[in-house]
Design a binder for these strands. Structure first.
Lengths: 153, 153
DNA sequence: ACCCTAGAGTTGACGTGTCAACTCTAGGGG
DNA sequence: CCCCTAGAGTTGACACGTCAACTCTAGGGT
């Protein structure tokens, strides 16, 4: 129990190395998305979620569940994307309340394009340097972590 | 070449699972740091870098190199931390230009505390569910990625 | 001695993410 | 029928991160 709560130097080093690698990778992919498609990773996530939805339309709560984001984050993101013309909020129901969110034409075209470009970038930066065993390890580890932190499914 | 640039469904899934796991983990650690020590991960990084420095003092360029952040990010972060009383900017040299950055007393005490608390949280959320083989794989993979994106050392 | 350029550091604008507080409405119990 | 509460969605304030543009100064070449 002497060492409980303390990280050994090589553990610190591994932790920093790993977070640094993740950060570099994500930043590289963000830049690629920005360069190739003019959108951010956050925008990409929303576009994907909407384009996968039946009728290309969801309400905010569905988006929250689909993305596993906080609802205020979704709301802020939708506001920015509405201003950029990628999505639209649609009044819904008899009284015209309950809001649904849909893709605009621009949003749909951008999504098509981004799936290809971003997929290619992920392949180049991530999967190309990943062996089968490493992939299996990452998958197992990710499942452990998700289960450990967010035990509900 | 038919599939180049396209990600197979299970690849997409792995990618999303993995980024989701990372996000949950980091958010959990951020909350722990906030709860236990009242600081953010960014603040922790700066405090660590300064407390490791000889004389507990660095200039901005050193911090940039040490943290591998963009210099404007360092500058903004220092401004926020100076306002909170963790660090101070010190005029340096005969003409009183060239700026050095040092820890305040509060900054030093906070650092001590945070190293223990944050280390414990990292152990609990990360190392406790990590086998030796997984650690080795993560290390190897991280090195690949860093080398692939930022080939300079 | 003078210019003048490279690098150190800052600033402003903006997108992203979190937290807490707020509004509105639908639907249920009296 | 009316209240009233739970949940959907928004808003505001703030910290973080990036990019581009700016200031200032040290030091070198002429």
């Amino acid at each position: 129990m002497a060492q409980t709560g303390t990280l050994k130097p090589d553990e610190w080093e591994l932790w920093q190395l790993w977070t640094h690698a993740y950060h570099l990778l994500v930043r590289e992919l963000d830049r690629g998305l920005q360069r190739d498609c003019g959108i951010s990773k956050a925008e990409f996530s929303v576009l994907m979620a909407l384009s996968r939805a039946p009728g290309r339309e969801l309400n905010v709560a569905d988006l929250v569940a689909e993305l596993d984001w906080e609802k205020s984050r979704v709301s802020h993101q939708l506001t920015r994307m509405e201003n950029r013309g990628f999505v639209q909020r649609i009044q819904h129901g008899a009284t015209g309340r309950r809001i649904r969110v849909g893709l605009t034409g621009t949003g749909q075209r951008t999504t098509q394009n981004a799936v290809r470009a971003h997929g290619a970038n992920i392949r180049r930066c991530f999967f190309d340097s990943l062996t089968t065993e490493q992939a299996a390890t990452l998958r197992a580890w990710s499942e452990q972590v998700v289960e450990g932190i967010e035990p509900r499914q």
